[in-house]
Design a binder for these strands. Structure first.
Length: 568
RNA sequence: UGGGCCGUCGCCAAGCGGUAAGGCACCGGAUUUUGAUUCCGGCAUCCCCAGGUUCGAAUCCUGGCGGCCCAGCCA
């Protein structure tokens, strides 16, 4: 927190919280993050987590509860509860002992419901689901009142108690609020409060055969927990009148204020649990934590960092305007964090063999290179330099295009952290493919500029005889369109899956020291990108690196531009 | 078409009647044993449009236009 008390709140919600603190209305804000355990958390949840936990952290005495909104046992699972907790912690937030379940309140909720019935504000409706839909009316036409709307309090109480006792099959009755079937807000047309669902609940077991719905549960749970600011996304704006209606009639301990903000939408990804489930279940990805998934655990496995994600959430802001964010912003946030955080290493993804004829056959020189060139305190690593090495195929050209400053036939280039070499001979196979380069080295160029000439190109390399091998997984966007839902043929987002979203490279030579890479360690493969040792599959004996994001590449950009120019 | 919400640079976003912050992207240019990083510079006479109020409007009023959300016994 800034020490400047004059500083402005970062967004309109923080401004409200600050006002409420200043006025003494709420000296200590209490927020909550209320996921339903029916899927994994995604980047959109991260925005909400950062908001809710952020407000608690920024305000003295503030707290943020983790509350599982577990009112639909049919879709919820313990696995999701575990994953959600893991992800929130990993992001760097702590709910202390403030972990709750809406199901903790089932008994109290039930009592509130009976109170509503006694006040004549709720009734048991015996219409079928289809009939309810029919009676609800449409956007432009008012609904009709249920024929069961005027049951007596006694009858309602009796029926509701018998619903609880499990006397009726699923779907035969519901408890509905008695509000206004003609309301222009469909949520106010006698919304359902309870349904019969004789399903085992992951927390309460077989204790209940009726379960409350969101609109009844959420506001009361907030109130029971003493939440001061109940923050949610814009689609719940229409539910606010109902949120307030329930609380006004229930005489709860307090009346939290619901405030809505726009949900995040990110280019080239989908952020909806329904769609993420579809990706998982269809096998389009390997699971919820597939590195291509926008889930927290997917991002984690991809190599994104908690800091990077939190920074992203901060930069994206909190407003009510559509929050359509470019992927470049997220990528910038990881790069910015990893630039500092990641150790440097060299790896050759598409090897071309180079024989340094001026280097003795069996000589090995242990060169040293910084772990991080800008941070000498991070120490050094050693690189065995040998007669045969690999360089990146793309770093050599028979004929140099304009502004090319890597290796060419007859040309010179600097090997990163080593010597300047000159290409003396190009060996090609019968198809004309370059298979090997014969070079000489300049022994005077270790940590020194060459005499009388300038060599500006620098390329990375790995010893051909002293290296480790690794599987390298190159990840890219999961979808080919910025908005996967915007299919020109009106089809599903599943139609624009990117076939190149994962390219697996087997058995690539990487710097020897990488053999010690432990799971989840971040590296920058110099000149290539940021990578992480996969926490599921990488072991010291079998290295697997996931590409988090490439380095910025102005050379590729230049080339693309020139190609486009030629195409015209 | 009923209701709710939104509309400031390519994207996000400050701004709250006194004459358009910032970030990302983009475009230069410097430094560089990562074409990375870093640095320096450029990038909205204009705020969806049209009227009006005012000495003065992105900010107030009126009327349009455009976008998003809502008809689960999901959350």
């Amino acid at each position: 927190m800034s020490n400047n008390s004059e500083h402005k709140a970062a967004d309109f919600i923080r401004a409200i919280v600050a006002e409420d603190r200043a006025s003494g209305k709420h000296p200590h804000p209490v927020t909550r993050f209320p996921p339903e355990p029916n899927g994994y958390l995604h980047i959109g949840h991260a925005k909400s987590i950062c908001l809710n936990f952020g407000i608690a952290e920024e305000n003295p005495g503030g707290v943020c509860h983790l509350r599982f909104d577990d009112t639909n046992p049919a879709k919820e699972e313990q696995e999701y509860i575990d994953a959600i907790q893991r992800d929130v912690r990993w992001l760097g937030f702590d709910w202390g002992d403030k972990r709750f379940f809406a199901s903790d309140y089932f008994e109290q909720l039930y009592q509130f419901a009976e109170t509503l019935i006694k006040k004549g504000k709720a009734y048991v409706c015996s219409l079928s689901a289809e009939e309810v839909r029919d009676y609800r009316g449409t956007l432009t036409r008012p609904g009709r009142e249920s024929p069961f709307r005027n049951r007596t309090v006694e009858e309602n109480l009796d029926l509701f108690r018998r619903m609880r006792a499990g006397e009726f099959p699923d779907g035969t009755h519901t408890l509905r609020a008695k509000i206004d079937m003609a309301s222009p807000n469909l949520n106010m047309r006698d919304p359902t409060l309870y349904r019969i669902l004789r399903t085992r609940h992951h927390q309460t077991g077989d204790a209940w055969s009726i379960y409350p719905l969101y609109d009844f549960t959420h506001c009361l749970s907030d109130a029971l927990e003493g939440i001061t600011h109940s923050l949610c996304t814009l689609e719940f704006e229409d539910h606010r009148p109902l949120y307030d209606w329930v609380l006004d009639l229930s005489d709860p301990p307090c009346h939290p204020r619901q405030i809505e903000f726009s949900r995040l939408s990110l280019e080239y990804t989908v952020v909806s649990k329904r769609k993420l489930i579809q990706l998982v279940e269809s096998g389009a990805v390997t699971g919820w934590d597939d590195p291509r998934m926008p889930t927290i655990s997917g991002l984690r496995r991809r190599g994104y960092t908690p800091r990077g994600i939190r920074d992203f959430c901060r930069r994206v802001g909190i407003t009510k305007a559509p929050n359509n964010v470019e992927l470049a912003l997220l990528e910038n946030c990881v790069r910015e964090d990893l630039e500092q955080a990641a150790d440097r290493a060299m790896a050759v993804l598409d090897p071309l063999k180079v024989v340094i004829e001026t280097w003795p056959e069996d000589q090995v020189e242990e060169l040293t290179a910084p772990v991080h060139p800008a941070l000498p305190e991070r120490g050094v690593r050693t690189l065995p330099f040998t007669r045969e090495i690999y360089i990146e195929r793309d770093d050599f050209r028979l004929e140099a295009p304009k502004k090319f400053k890597r290796l060419t036939a007859g040309g010179e280039v600097r090997l990163r952290n080593a010597y300047v070499i000159r290409c003396k001979e190009v060996i090609r196979d019968e198809r004309g493919e370059v298979v090997e380069l014969r070079c000489s080295h300049d022994a005077m160029t270790l940590n020194a500029q060459p005499e009388g000439r300038k060599v500006s190109g620098v390329i990375h390399w790995v010893s051909a005889t002293r290296h480790a091998r690794a599987e390298v997984r190159l990840y890219d966007k999961l979808f080919t369109r910025p908005d996967p839902d915007d299919d020109p043929e009106g089809g599903s987002f599943m139609n624009c899956l990117n076939p190149q979203s994962l390219v697996v490279l087997q058995d690539r030579p990487v710097e020897e020291g990488l053999a010690a890479a432990t799971a989840e360690r971040h590296y920058q493969f110099e000149r290539v990108g940021y990578f992480i040792a996969d926490h599921g599959d990488s072991t010291p004996g079998r290295l697997v690196f996931n590409r988090t994001v490439t380095l910025r590449d102005s050379w590729a950009k230049l080339q693309a531009r020139e190609q486009e120019g030629e195409g015209r």
